[in-house]
Design a protein around this nucleic acid. Structure first.
Lengths: 142, 142
DNA sequence: TTCTATTTGCAATTCAGTTGCATCTAGGTA
DNA sequence: TACCTAGATGCAACTGAATTGCAAATAGAA
């Protein structure tokens, strides 16, 4: 399983023509292993002991975002979270959900982006972000 | 016209049972006069010379938000913007648009919120926020 | 007019994210 | 293989939006 992830990391970086450095590999591996989008701070905590600097995390995430390997989520708390997305674009291809109880942010990968009406005259729509807020499955059960 | 706005301010505050203080009246007036959602910083600049403190702006906006008089928009740049909304709720009742050229954020009041599919099992959807990014009518013409 | 729960102003603080610069290194080239 | 250089990293200092603590002021009820 772990080698599987390592391979995916290599493939993603190579395909996007991004240099394979230690911080990038470790960080991308961390994101791939996470079910949910992670914040800088959460990643920093997961990477404690690796010697990878806080600033490097910011810069690697920016690089991965530019390369279209990850997408960035701002779900209303002014904290950016990052997740690897299969679609290969930095834009959002699915809605996101924030639980108002536990605060966790999730990718609603199975949920379709809503259908849009045509844009008002003069406006050019390029990207769409959709955020749900409510109570997640875990917190609903408690 | 100005008295008209003053009256709307009084009515909004009274209806929400929020004390009519000088900072609240001036701030709400400023928001009502603006076509677009304003950031703390923009409001601060508009309120220069009134002697109203920066921190008060934050607190008044929070109070107006709690009272459902304004809604808060985070359009991806980690800056909160505020606008008065007719619907009387702090949640969003219309999508928002950010222009990637001029950076301005607009309420798409005439544009309907998209139709939703039922929430995945266990999840309770309570609020929805929809953000478009692209080029606004003004910038499209240039 | 008096009284009290709220509200405001001010100064200091927090916290996410950024910048400048010296050092290091991936991966192409001789 | 050794060398070279554009690009990547580490460190320290910084920025800028938002928050907090506390004393002084005030809206509006009694």
């Amino acid at each position: 399983m772990n080698t599987n992830i390592r391979e995916r990391v290599e493939r993603l970086l190579q395909k996007a023509q991004v240099k394979r450095t230690k911080p990038r590999m470790i960080l991308l591996e961390t994101l791939l292993e996470s079910r949910i989008p992670l914040s800088h701070e959460e990643i920093g905590r997961l990477l404690e002991g690796t010697g990878i600097n806080r600033v490097t995390i910011y810069r690697v995430l920016q690089r991965l975002l530019d390369a279209g390997i990850v997408h960035r989520v701002e779900a209303g708390d002014r904290i950016w979270r990052f997740a690897v997305c299969e679609c290969g674009r930095s834009g959002h291809c699915h809605p996101h959900f924030t639980c108002r109880i536990c605060g966790r942010v999730e990718c609603m990968s199975g949920y379709p982006m809503p259908e849009l009406k045509p844009s008002p005259s003069g406006y050019q729509f390029e990207e769409l972000e959709v955020y749900f807020r409510g109570i997640c499955a875990d917190c609903s059960m408690k």
